[in-house]
Design a protein around this nucleic acid. Structure first.
Lengths: 111, 111
DNA sequence: CTGGATCCCCTATGATACTG
DNA sequence: CAGTATCATAGGGGATCCAG
């Protein structure tokens, strides 16, 4: 739970209002988010596949990041009630729209 | 000082190697960095001007973020030995190249 | 297989005080 | 004016165990 009175929270709120770029950065700056998005785009679209590609992430964190990405409407979660349960992650339109921007960033970084 | 053995550090290293996008995100995802870049681009190019625009930032943090931006070659610091001392910050070529990408991000976020 | 619950630790962020 | 030194803290990231 976040204390709304902490200067931390105050600053966060200030940033959110003053510039949407901060909102955008918030969404993609989770430690694994960009990477997860890219892998999902490359058909690593299940929990176990993502774990295989991200060997050092813990289940817990992967779950959290996926949840946040879903909350931000970047990915869509589809539960397929097989035995065992299977879950597919796919990029939403917004998620797809983000990919070229990430590519730009990557190219910029090479500058 | 960062403990190199912490899983935190291990993961950071893994991310840095596995994908340059993380490097790029590292550079711009400091809480105030994007905002500082934008303001410098808008001629808020001195310490005190930046403080005026970012009322809730503390001297300490502003200094640190500027230092990091400089280390990342996004801004250039010019010391002008007047009395009192004056310092100008300007965007480097790399910094300027980042701006359109930030604009893209901002537009994407509005989607 | 997917991921929630719980607890811990690290580090970026911040407050404050001080210097050239 | 333009920072730096020091200290404190929140909360994001992580390990581990557990559940549907």
């Amino acid at each position: 739970m976040i204390k709304e009175t902490s200067s931390n929270a105050v600053n966060k709120a200030f940033l959110a209002k003053s510039c949407r770029i901060n909102g955008a950065l918030d969404v993609i700056s989770g430690r694994w988010k960009a990477l997860i998005l890219i892998h999902i785009a490359e058909d690593k679209n299940r929990f176990s596949l993502l774990k295989a590609v991200l060997p050092t992430i813990s289940d817990n964190i992967l779950g959290k990041q996926l949840k946040e990405l879903e909350a931000a409407n970047l990915i869509v979660k589809t539960i397929i009630p097989e035995i065992p349960v299977r879950v597919d992650y796919t990029l939403s339109d917004k998620g797809e729209a983000l990919l070229p921007i990430l590519v730009n960033l990557s190219e910029w970084y090479d500058l």
